[in-house]
Nucleic acid binder design. Structure first.
Length: 328
DNA sequence: ATTTGTGTTGAA
DNA sequence: TCAACACAAATG
């Protein structure tokens, strides 16, 4: 808590009465008002502004600034309220989470509202890490439930900025009321979390992933004809987790089945061709992994922004029956 | 059409 | 380093 650092300028709020066009300043450091009533968060470094995203809630924007400040300036950074003292184990874990991710990665999480999810995953990894050997000793094949594949169409990467989820898959795996809108988090094969808004579009009578999809397309370089796979599982506490994977379509090939994880373990990836219904052939697939998949040490990327650049990670995924465990 | 976030400036 | 302001670019 740094009350002394909170801006006093809010006492000048009367100016907004004199000039209705003038935006009310935020009470918080690093937070700027937007014209639509939302709040932006930003931090400066090396004479540059680093945009941290926009938020409906002023306090949330302030928290986001705090996290960025702690990452960019260390645990003694001046913040609005968030403090992480090393003596507290939870805080220490978060500090370590902050430093094991690059600035660009943290900024990416903040802008995409996935910081808390990634932190939670990171905590779970550490928790499971302790009895990991136990689990390995007993058995251990890891099973994710395959949900479905979606071939990326031209309109999925066009200006509509949405991914159509075929109706039968949508209603089976992502049931939702047709008048509602939700956010779903997906981990990719490297453990990075992607957040999509999911809703039903009456205009086209289809279920779609909207907000967030465009960024996925850009960072992954998704192209027409590529395949997106969806998987799900429960974690140890019964919490449902979703995975998203995508595969480039090999040039001159018109349909293909994504390689299994075992196949992907090898440097040489085998592509199996099918002349028939891919979805049917895929219906009962499960995803099996073992510990040779990845080692753990996260690769260090350049600390330089801009953050748009994709980040490489090497994670190891594990699960037992229907429980997913992700170990780094 | 709405929202995001950059260009720019001046103050601290 | 910081926020204010205008407004272009992005995006839903």
């Amino acid at each position: 808590m740094n009350p002394s650092l909170l801006q006093q300028q809010s006492t000048e709020g009367f100016t907004s009465k004199e000039n209705p066009c003038k935006l009310q300043s935020s009470r918080y450091r690093g937070v700027v008002p937007q014209h639509n009533g939302r709040w932006g968060a930003q931090i400066y470094e090396c004479h540059r502004r680093i945009w941290l995203g926009t938020f409906a809630d002023e306090l949330e924007a302030a928290c986001v600034y705090d996290i960025a400040a702690l990452r960019f300036r260390g645990d003694d950074a001046a913040t609005n309220f968030k403090q992480l003292c090393k003596s507290d184990p939870d805080c220490a874990a978060e500090l370590s989470f902050l430093t094991t991710n690059t600035k660009a990665e943290i900024v990416h999480m903040l802008r995409n509202h996935t910081y808390n999810e990634e932190l939670k995953i990171s905590r779970r990894k550490h928790l499971l890490g302790k009895d990991f050997h136990l689990r390995k000793a007993s058995n251990n094949r890891c099973v994710f439930e395959f949900l479905f594949n979606k071939m990326v169409t031209p309109s999925d990467i066009g200006k509509l900025n949405r991914l159509v989820i075929p109706k039968q898959h949508a209603e089976k795996h992502f049931p939702i009321r047709k008048d509602s809108k939700i956010s779903i988090n997906f981990q990719d094969e490297k453990g990075k979390v992607w957040r999509f808004t999911y809703c039903y579009w009456n205009s086209s009578q289809s279920y779609v992933m909207t907000k967030g999809w465009r960024l996925f397309v850009r960072e992954k370089g998704v192209r027409e004809g590529d395949m997106v796979s969806f998987w799900s599982s429960l974690d140890g506490t019964g919490f449902k987790q979703y995975l998203i994977e995508f595969f480039h379509r090999p040039s001159h090939v018109h349909s293909f089945v994504p390689p299994s994880i075992e196949e992907r373990n090898h440097t040489q990836v085998t592509i199996r061709l099918f002349g028939v219904d891919i979805c049917k052939a895929e219906a009962n697939r499960t995803l099996e992994l073992d510990e040779k998949f990845g080692n753990g040490k996260r690769e260090r990327e350049s600390e330089l922004l801009p953050p748009e650049i994709c980040i490489k990670r090497n994670n190891c995924m594990h699960s037992e029956e229907h429980n997913i465990y992700i170990i780094t």
